[in-house]
Simulated assay, not measured.
Amino acid sequence: MRDFASHISARRAIAPAAAVTDNTPLVSEIIDLSGFGQAMFVIAIGALATAAATFTVLVEHGDDPALTDAEAVPDSQLTGSEAEASFDGNDDNETRKIGYVGPKQFVRLTITPANNAGAANVSAVALLGTPRYWPAA
């Protein structure tokens, strides 16, 4: 069966909210991968007011539910790269993605703006795949 929805589960990572107007990092929810073998963050970029702004993506993982043991994910455990998922002020209304195939139970996404002086509308969703039990809830 070609049913994609039964093979994934979606989690809110960075909620749609008021636009970021400075260089405060956008830090996602901690995503629990229990019952799933992989994850992908989908970043939705809305209007970006500062053309000179850059937004750097970082994916961290760990085994502690609060991620007190967080460490940057090695490139070999990512599908795509953090550089490819990053964006700048000229990338209005686009999307980016980055996947995780590492061994840890918890992951999070951080998007760090630089030179951002205007409104930046950004949100993200985590898609969990390869469910241990099918169909995925």
Rank of each mutant, 00 (worst) to 15 (best):
S6K: 13
P16H: 03
D88E: 12
H7G: 07
A114G: 09
S6Y: 05
A51K: 12
V125E: 08
P16Q: 10
N116V: 01
T56R: 12
I98M: 03
D75W: 00
N115E: 12
T56I: 10
N93L: 11
A39Q: 05
A49Q: 09
F87M: 06
V101S: 06
A10D: 00
Q77N: 08
G35N: 11
Y100D: 01
S81R: 04
N23Y: 04
L127H: 09
D32S: 03
P131N: 12
E94A: 14
D22Q: 04
A52L: 05
H7W: 12
T21S: 06
A5C: 08
R12I: 15
F106T: 02
A120Q: 03
L127R: 03
I43D: 07
V122A: 00
G129S: 14
F87D: 01
V59Q: 02
V20K: 05
D3T: 14
S86K: 05
A15E: 11
A39D: 07
H61K: 01
G129H: 02
R11V: 06
A114V: 02
A49T: 09
T68G: 14
T110G: 03
P135E: 15
V125I: 15
R132I: 05
W134H: 13
D3M: 01
P135F: 15
A52C: 01
E94M: 10
A49D: 11
V42T: 13
A124E: 08
D92P: 00
T24A: 11
E60I: 03
W134C: 07
A137C: 05
F36N: 06
F55G: 00
P25Y: 09
A119F: 00
A47H: 09
A5Y: 07
